[in-house]
């Protein structure tokens, strides 16, 4: 299983993803710079966290126009697994691969701490390794993680079971219901209609190695691996998105 990890100028969780996928979980992580035009052959794409282009204009606004994004959109359109973490989630929304947008945290503060999430469903390519209703601990670190969308879009996400993780910590100061950033319906992660593109604000890659204080994030990557191996058995191998691996 090969994960292509994208690096934009200002990405700062690309090495963490590399380490979690490669050293900790034993799969292959391959770096792809944002100026490349082709992903090469891979089974999944990781758009890591950080501050692409310094968050200038809006978080993710400039990264969505990077050369590699065309091939990521093609890869997603062909059913390939794409996960955007934190700034990656913001980029996927800006690029139109996911609905809605992420705006300033309601508190106007940058929040860096562990949060409790509820796994809303394990019937997805990204959560099958968990149990529905399971509560897991994954850290967040963001200033712009307040998820907003048109009411009709939110209603559709809920109806179609496309909210995969929800903030569900205990009440803590000015953060009612453990919703750290003011996201509508405490949404922490959503998938596209087809279910192959995930955006999440929490950082699963930071809780894969037990040395770092937890392993609750492993399930996200392991779910992707098992989804990919199931789909490989069921059908012909997925064609590389465009150009070769050179």
């Amino acid at each position: 299983m090969i994960f292509a990890v994208i690096t934009f100028p200002g990405s700062n969780c690309d090495r963490d993803c590399h380490d979690a996928i490669g050293r900790v979980l034993g799969y292959t992580a391959r770096s792809v710079f944002h100026k490349e035009r082709a992903l090469g052959s891979c089974d999944a794409v990781v758009i890591p966290g950080g501050f692409s282009y310094g968050d200038y204009l809006r978080a993710g606004a400039l990264a969505k126009l990077s050369p590699i994004m065309d091939d990521i959109c093609r890869f997603a359109d062909s059913g390939g697994l794409v996960i955007g973490i934190c700034n990656g989630f913001q980029i996927l929304c800006e690029a139109g691969l996911l609905p809605g947008a992420l705006i300033r945290n309601q508190s106007l503060r940058f929040i860096s701490r562990m949060v409790t999430l509820t796994v809303e469903t394990n019937r997805s390519a990204f959560t099958s390794a968990y149990m529905t209703g399971q509560r897991i601990q994954i850290p967040i670190a963001h200033g712009e993680g307040c998820y907003v969308a048109e009411p009709s879009v939110v209603e559709q996400l809920e109806r179609e079971g496309r909210v995969l993780f929800r903030y569900s910590g205990t009440i803590r100061g000015d953060e009612p219901d453990g919703n750290p950033n003011g996201s509508i319906n405490s949404i922490a992660a959503i998938v596209n209609a087809r279910g192959n593109v995930l955006g999440m604000m929490p950082h699963p890659e930071r809780v894969c190695d037990p040395l770092l204080g937890g392993t609750d994030g492993q399930g996200v990557f392991l779910s992707m691996v098992s989804y990919r191996s199931r789909s490989r058995q069921e059908s012909a191998p997925m064609a590389p998105s465009s150009a070769d691996d050179s």
Binding site: L57, R58, A61, L62, L65, C93, E94, P99, G100, A101, I103, V148, A149, E150
Partner: peptide, 9 residues
């Protein structure tokens, strides 16, 4: 519409 504003918000 391609860059300066995010039409969602």
């Amino acid at each position: 519409h391609t860059l300066l504003a995010n039409p969602v918000i």
